[in-house]
Amino acid sequence: MLKSTIELARYGIPWLGPAMAFLGGLALLAEGKGQWPAIAVIFGSVLSAGGIYSLLRSLRKGEKERALLDVRMLQSHKLASLGELTAGIAHEINNPLAIIGREAEWLEHLLSTMPPAEGVPRKELLESVREVGVQVNRCREITQNLLSFARKMEPIFQKVDVNRLVEDMVKLVETETQGKGIEIVRDYQQPMEPIMTDPPGLRQVMLNLLNNARQAIEGRGQITIRTRALEDGRVQIAVEDTGCGIPREHLPRIFDPFFTTKAHGKGTGLGLSICHGIVDRLGGRIWVRSEPGLGSTFVVELPATPKRAS
C-alpha cells in the first residue's frame, strides 16, 4: 500500500509542476494581464513539489545504502525518524497543495463568470482547470495515506488473552489458506495468564507475521503458531513456516523499512518494520531464525506488564 503510494507520489508529483505552469499561463490569458504574483505562486509550487519529490527519492536511496551498515540497535531510532520524516513531508506537501487547489477553484470561478470572448476556448479551459482539482484530490489521498502510516500510535495497555487474540487472527488468515495446500497447526499453551498489552498493536503484528508466512510458502506447506508463557510471566508467540526461508545475507536487514524480497508490487517492505516498531513500543522484542529452503520462525516476546506502567 505504502509503496504504491510512494510510486504514485513519484509519478504524480513531477508532472504536477509542469501542469501548474501550463495552467498558470492559462490563468494569465484568462485574466488578460500579466501577473507576477501568480507566476511566483506557480513557480513556488513547482519548486516545492520538485524538492519534496527529490527528498523522497534520496530518502529511499539513502535507506538502501545505509542498510548495509545497519546495526540492530539503530532500528527503532531509524523507524521513529522515518515516521517523523514521512509526516513532515506529507505536511509540507499539503500546504502548497492547498494553495494549488484554491487557485484552481478561483480560476474556475473567473472563467465561469467572464463574458464569452472571441477566440477563448472557455469550455476547454474549464475542463482543464477542473482536472487540476481532481489531481489535487489524488495527491491529497496520497499525503493522507502517508500521514496515517507515520501516525504514532500511543499504546494503550489493556488486559489481553493472548491465545484468543492470536486465534482470531489465525482464523482470518486461515480463510485464505484453505484449500491451497497450506496446513495451519496450533500449539497454544493452555491455560495462559492474561498479559497487559495493546490489543490492536498486537493484532497488527500477528496479521503481518501470518501473512508473511503464508506468502513465503509456495505450493504445499505448514504454518505453526506457538504460544508459550515463560516463568517470569513473559509471553512468546512464534510463527513458523515451511516456506522459502531468508538468505543469510538478508537477515540483518529484514526489519529495515522498504526492504523487501517479495516480487515488485507484492510487498510494501514495511510490514516487518512496522511490526518491529510496535513490539518495541509494547516493551517487547522480535527476532527471526531462518534456514534457506526450510523456512523461517518469527518470535515475538512480550512482557506480562509494560515496564513503564506500574
Binding site: 505562486v41 500546504n95 494553495i99 484554491r102 487557485e103 477553484e105 478561483w106
Partner: peptide
C-alpha cells in the same frame, strides 16, 4: 500564515 492561500480563499468566500 500562507498569504496566497489567505487571499484566494478570502476571495472565494466573498463570492
Amino acid at each position: 500564515d500562507e498569504e496566497r492561500f489567505r487571499v484566494t480563499t478570502a476571495r472565494l468566500l466573498g463570492v
